[in-house]
Simulated assay, not measured.
Amino acid sequence: MITYPLNLKENAHIGVTAPSSGVPDALHHLLHEAIKRQTDRGYKVTVGDTAWTQQNLTSASAIKRAAEFNTMMQDHHIDIIIPPWGGERLIDILPFIEFNKFQPKWVLGYSDTSLLLLAITLHTGLATAHGTNFIDLRGTEMDETTAMWEDILKTPLGASITQMSSNHYQYEWQFNNPTPHIFHLTEKTVWKSASGQPETLEGHLLGGCIDTVKHLMGTPYGDVNKFVNNYIPSKNVIWFFENCELSLPQLHRTLIQMKLAGWFDHCNGIMFGRSSAQKVEEDYELIDLYRTLSTELAIPILYDIDCGHLPPQLTLVNGAFATISFNNGQGIVTQSFK
């Protein structure tokens, strides 16, 4: 069975460490703002050394990044770890992560952080949370979708919680013109299905940024079938992915490789987040890929959901049992910690 961290308590202690990219000097003000906002909200915040440094596409050496993460995962006083943001080189630290010494606490984030999240869940059966990063919590307010991260992680063992699709999303970042909730939510959110029809998906959630989680295939940290056999009695999985930068042919090849590697052997459905990388290649469009995959796997596929680099995004828990209902451009996601 899946192990769920204790529900997040009031005035919890947040550990901020950078297992991928840290914050360069010129952007330290963003980290200071995020620390202040969370302190104002009643949280205690401890920031590791790696969060303040950045060189060669990474916050520090792989050994130092892993050591700081391991220390926070083993610290009884820290309740949740939220990296400042993602990056490019998180994969370096996997050989140095002490999976067998973890305390059952939440790790929250997205982008390159999702590689670590998925590795933790697949390798240990410990639930992890794909959602906002720490820097994006620096606003004086949070939009309704982002704000659900707290309610999700406060959900007790055995209980369920429901999220709705957002009303609007952000198409492009305006870093020098933040709103009170950071994002510029200007575009109407419309979820879609490959079939064009209402859909219902049920199963245990797994996923992340497909650009980075794909690199777990063929490693000791990406054995999906072993995870399913050990931790998912129902054998039903719902995958969620978001594409940050892959071209359409790259995305196609990645999804076929996942199928050939057995990642979709127990798949009950796939959800894809919005992406700015969706470009037509000759006469091949993204919907063609989704429809082909849906037919080949005989599963429903939803896309343009609230997940990834075009915020806001749902908080989706790797390992949680979920029921997703889609109809008329809107989605309802209910997650159960069982």
Rank of each mutant, 00 (worst) to 15 (best):
Y110R: 00
S111D: 14
S111G: 04
D112F: 07
T113M: 11
T113D: 13
T113E: 11
S114T: 15
S114A: 12
L116M: 15
L117S: 08
L118F: 06
A119V: 08
I120R: 04
T121W: 07
T121P: 07
L122T: 05
H123F: 06
H123N: 14
G125V: 02
L126P: 04
A127Q: 02
T128F: 03
T128M: 10
A129F: 05
A129C: 03
G131H: 09
F134P: 06
F134A: 08
I135D: 01
D136Q: 12
L137D: 05
L137Y: 02
R138I: 04
R138S: 13
T140W: 01
E141N: 10
M142K: 05
D143W: 08
T145S: 08
T146D: 09
T146E: 07
A147S: 14
M148D: 03
D151R: 13
L153W: 01
L153I: 02
K154E: 01
K154D: 00
S160H: 01
I161Q: 08
T162W: 03
M164D: 07
S165L: 03
S166G: 14
H168F: 15
Y169Q: 00
Y171L: 10
E172F: 13
W173E: 11
Q174Y: 14
F175S: 10
N176Q: 11
N177Y: 12
N177A: 14
P178K: 10
P178F: 06
H181G: 00
H181M: 04
I182D: 05
H184E: 04
L185R: 13
T186C: 00
E187C: 01
E187K: 13
K188R: 14
T189C: 03
T189G: 00
V190R: 12
K192G: 00
S193Y: 08
S193V: 05
A194D: 07
S195P: 10
G196K: 02
P198E: 10
E199D: 11
E199V: 11
E199Y: 03
T200K: 14
L201R: 11
E202V: 02
E202A: 02
G203R: 06
H204D: 06
L205Q: 04
G207S: 10
G207E: 11
G208I: 08
C209S: 15
C209L: 02
I210Q: 02
D211I: 01
K214D: 04
K214W: 04
P220I: 12
